[in-house]
Design a protein around this nucleic acid. Structure first.
Lengths: 232, 232
DNA sequence: CTTACCTAATGATATATTTCATGATTTACA
DNA sequence: TGTAAATCATGAAATATATCATTAGGTAAG
């Protein structure tokens, strides 16, 4: 399932992480001794809904999706995470099992930071705690925005919005092609709709020369128009 | 718009608030000197989307709704708050304008705690900070759950679910009647649907003897069945 | 290389929900 | 308490989206 990689210093230098920016050199050094890096491949599950966790993870490379299973059995993608993001910190603080599942989309290297390490830093470094509080607040804000969107926008609007969100998150290459490969189903799980609906809407956007599609490649042709459709 | 009430000690004893449970007697005393209680009436807006705030509020009594305006102009109710809840703490930490609006539904008494007071306690009392972190994490979890629900459940399921949520939040009297008076439109704004749909579904539930309705009074008759409809 | 399987595409049909319209109640407030 | 305004209720029609079914492409594994 996962392969431990050599602890090459360079490979998991956490000091570059925004999340750890308020740590002292000493604290970073302590941190270094308690963490472990692992490599995961596509499809690997990092943690499962309900599972008790021993620590949180920093994404060094790769792409993961954080999902929740709905009552109808379909999965809802809560967010995508990439290099620089952290996952599983929420359930550590609440001391409950995880309320989401994290699954690898593109081969990833993750650094595991034990719960104890986190709490000891939280208790000694006040700035770090405030920082963490802000990270969570930011996520809460995003979540509230998403609730409002999903409740009031049409599927068409939401598909357009998700495309823009993906563009912001993953970026595009020189040809304006989205730098991540997702299935139509994954986009549907992000939007919260049927796969067929996403396919139809992508085709429609393609027909209207708003995007171009070649397999899973999505090229942004008319971003202003897409933004207008998304109602943003 | 609002009437300042007399600072009767008993009226705003914050030590009973869960949120402040980790404060020392000294800190509570300091807090007491910096807060102010006000009474608001139905329809009053405590703060508006985008507004910069000077502090957060503790609800001593009454009912408020926290809303966000969607792109279609309709409001989405993010949550209801009652005695013991706090509002506006998020935007204080992120140092941005508020991303929601808080409006009074039932005459309320709120205690205003200045931003500076909060940060000074946050920097001195580590337990309090961790506690705050947990409160925010709890809200984030709720938000994630709600995203999954709203994206995957039918309007019918969501109306049932919201009724149950309201019951958990506001309770019922001895006759199983919900202890809060909401308009159909407010329920619709909670569910994220059209007012007429809520009206129709409530009528349906009434016809099926799951609830009884008399004006805005909602009586729970068959809770197990409602829970089954809600898919919980 | 080739078979098998997952993913994408598209049409037809079903259906839940919205929207519009109109009248009946109820609520709030002067 | 009376009265205007808001809310509630219901029907009919429109519509967006889901579901089902089938075919075609890709992709991955043997």
């Amino acid at each position: 399932m996962k392969n431990y990689i050599h602890p090459l210093q360079e490979e998991y230098d956490l000091s570059t992480f925004n999340f750890f920016k308020s740590l002292t050199p000493d604290e970073l050094k302590t941190l270094d001794g308690q963490i472990s890096a692992s490599q995961y491949k596509k499809g690997d599950v990092i943690y499962h809904e309900g599972k008790r966790l021993t620590g949180f993870y920093c994404i060094m490379s790769g792409v993961l999706k954080v999902i929740k299973t709905g009552s109808d059995g379909k999965e809802q993608i809560i967010r995508f995470v990439t290099k620089g993001d952290i996952i599983a910190y929420r359930s550590l603080l609440s001391k409950e099992g995880a309320c989401t599942t994290a699954k690898v989309i593109e081969q990833a290297v993750l650094v595991h930071v034990p719960y104890n390490t986190l709490t000891s830093i939280l208790s000694s470094n006040h700035k770090f705690t405030l920082n963490t509080l802000q990270v969570v607040c930011k996520e809460l804000k995003d979540a509230n925005n998403y609730i409002t969107d999903i409740a009031h926008k049409t599927v068409r609007e939401r598909v357009a919005e998700v495309l823009i969100m993906l563009r912001d998150k993953f970026g595009v290459n020189k040809d304006n092609v989205l730098q991540v490969s997702l299935t139509r189903e994954e986009i549907a799980n992000m939007v919260g709709t049927a796969t067929e609906s996403v396919i139809r809407l992508l085709s429609e956007f393609k027909h209207d020369k708003i995007i171009e599609i070649k397999g899973r490649e999505i090229k942004f042709v008319n971003l202003p128009r897409l933004t207008r459709i998304a109602n943003m």
